[in-house]
Amino acid sequence: MNNQQQQKGDNKHDKFTWTIKNFSRLNTKKLYSETFLIGGYPWRLLLFPKGNNVDYLSIYLDVADSSKLPSGWERGARFKVALINQVKSDYVVGKETRHQFNARESDWGFTSFISLRDFSDPSRGYLLNDTCIIQVEISVLDSANENQVDQATSTTVPLDSGDQARQMEMEPPQQENLKQNVTASVPLSSHVSTESIEPANNLSLLKGMSSTPTDELIDFRGLGKIEAAFVPLLEQVCSQYPSLIDCQRKRSRRFTEWAFIALGRVLHFLKTKKGKDMNDDACNHLQILWEELETFRFDLTWLEPHVQSALGMKSYLERAMQVKKLKENVSALEMERKRLKAELASAEVDLEVAKRHLAKAEEDLQERDMDVELGYGHP
């Protein structure tokens, strides 16, 4: 593995490049880069080569030697992680977030960075000659700006397309932005995926959310900034089930905000998906959203049947496909039976004709003694 830090470690804004060779030979659940300094603090990248309990490459930023951090230590940072495309140099897979690092939350990042299928596809250019290149760009925030970390956290609806790697590719204008200023926001209209940001323990909503432009957020009943697409869905269910709000009133504003974001994500998923969309990726994604939502202790007895029905849609589709194939097989056999039946009828007609010919030939045939001598006549 080849690692490269391009500037001095005391700069508050810097980048680090991690080149991993012989990737297919990695026989470990997780892999750390070597330690590098940015803003006077030691950092390292944490990689799950086969995914952190998901079929995606999982990448996190980690505070090195977190066990040695003094009590009360914390530092805000905004960072972007990019997976370099070695075929198309002006394309990368890039994701951005910010987080308040401390001794309890010392790692933060992306559990579902890029699907392992797309990552492993040589034609994509992210794993070439068994080598991948990961780059992180970090801005360590001043103390005066650390509150911005909490204020800006939210979530967006993850990509639903099976071709996620293509949708996550960052085109040259955004890539140039990544090089110039890590604090610049990335609009949702760009090709940069802004999937939920998750800690390495895979409980993303308990620890934070990804950044969303503030003009796309709405203050939901004074409980927190929620994505506009979630608000009408939340209004509807909270009107039907007031306990959803009541059970969160004693929680902190930030925790309540996360709780309703988690609920909004599940509702939005169920609202925007159709049964035919529930492939393996969609089912896995819904399962993750549901498990995250359950951690907030809502009374979800009204919602669980709908979620379980959606999760069961894949097996239903498989059974429906099997039934369809069986129907097609039965239809083909019926057609074959009709064909054979027609051939049998024709053969029976031919048999009757042959029998009549045989009977007539037997009538015309005079029997002879086959044992008599043939002779040649008498003189």
Rank of each mutant, 00 (worst) to 15 (best):
Q174A: 07
P187A: 04
T153E: 00
H191N: 11
S210D: 06
P122G: 03
T131K: 05
A144R: 10
E169W: 01
S154W: 00
I218M: 05
L206A: 09
Y126G: 02
T156L: 15
L128C: 01
T153M: 01
P199F: 05
E195M: 10
L127D: 01
P158M: 04
N147L: 13
P213W: 05
T212C: 04
L205F: 13
F119S: 07
T212S: 01
E171P: 09
F119P: 01
S211C: 04
R166F: 07
L223V: 13
S185L: 00
G208Q: 03
E198N: 13
S211H: 06
A144M: 08
V157A: 11
L206P: 03
M170N: 12
E198Y: 01
S161G: 08
A152M: 03
L178W: 11
N177R: 05
S196N: 10
D215G: 07
K207W: 09
D150S: 12
V149F: 03
Y126N: 00
M168Y: 10
S196M: 11
N145G: 13
S120A: 13
E169N: 04
Q148T: 08
N129W: 05
L188S: 10
D160Q: 10
L178P: 02
I133T: 11
T183M: 14
T155L: 05
P213S: 12
R166D: 02
N147P: 08
S210E: 04
L205N: 07
A184T: 14
Q151V: 04
G162E: 00
I197E: 13
T156V: 12
L178C: 14
E216A: 05
V192G: 11
T214G: 09
T183P: 01
T214H: 10
N181C: 14
V140C: 03
E176C: 03
L159F: 10
V149C: 08
V186I: 15
D150F: 06
D215M: 12
N181T: 09
L217N: 06
Q148C: 08
D130H: 08
A200Q: 08
Q151D: 06
H191W: 14
M170E: 13
V157R: 06
I197M: 08
C132H: 01
S185H: 04
A152F: 02
L141K: 11
M168C: 15
S139L: 13
A200F: 09
D163G: 03
L205G: 06
I134H: 05
S154L: 01
L159R: 06
D142E: 14
S161Q: 10
S154E: 01
S143M: 14
Q164S: 12
I134S: 04
F220T: 04
E198F: 06
N202G: 04
Q151T: 07
E198I: 13
D150E: 13
S154I: 02
L217F: 13
P213A: 13
M170Y: 14
S143K: 11
V192H: 10
G125L: 02
N177G: 03
S204G: 09
N201H: 12
I218D: 00
I138D: 07
N181E: 11
M170T: 08
P199W: 08
